[in-house]
Amino acid sequence: MAAVVGLAACTAPDPSVTRGEIFDPYEESNRKTHEFNRALDKALVRPAGNAYGGVIPQGMQENVGNFAENLSAPGMITNNVLQGDARGGAINLFRFLINSTFGFGGIIDAATEFGVNVEYTDFGETLHVWGAREGAYIELPILGPSTERDALGKAVDLFTNPLTYVLSGSDRRYSRAAGVAKRLGERNRYGDTVDSVLHESADSYAQARLIYLQSRRFDLGGDMDALYADPYAKSADAGAENAYEDPYADPYADPYAE
């Protein structure tokens, strides 16, 4: 495991790069991957998503999505345990038990009906909790925006779900098919938003990168207090000049600070 953490910290950002900024030394190759992903979405994923959304009734799409999510719960619980997150682990375990039984094998998200919402986690977050740095930004083929840490997390997560070792070959295929169907349903459901970033933006690569990093850092940070405290103080010291010169310097920049 120590070796894994060591790997995760592979590309050390320039010391001047703080958590609020973007570290993208592979931008050139990332942009090529991005063009591939964009073409793939236009040619395959978007039409497939539209077809799926058009043919499968809304209720059934939700059932499939719930089923796939329930099967991913044991993997999340493993990561909760690795992070020492008792609360998240208990919530996800409770959800898995309730949904597998009262939710008819996971097709109904009964736990959410009771107000117990999923606590998403993955091995990328586990690495974060263990102190690994985010590393460089990477756009992965097919999977999309990521970072070095999260990409490694994704690879490790192929092995963190205990269900994969229990399910028979055909069950594993169903599980995988449900996962793909869930993705297609989401591509359809959030179609306008995805289109606006991927196909309508002036620089879809930069938009996807910015949105992914902000959203991921928000998820890992939990609450925004930690982010608020530091950058505000910094911008107060640096003044307005810096806020304009580096658009990524300060996510909570004060536009009135002139």
Binding site: D203, I211, P247
Partner: peptide, 12 residues
């Protein structure tokens, strides 16, 4: 969800 409207639009 942590995505800054000002920053996103400045980038765009």
């Amino acid at each position: 969800e942590g995505i800054n409207m000002l920053l996103t639009e400045r980038s765009e």
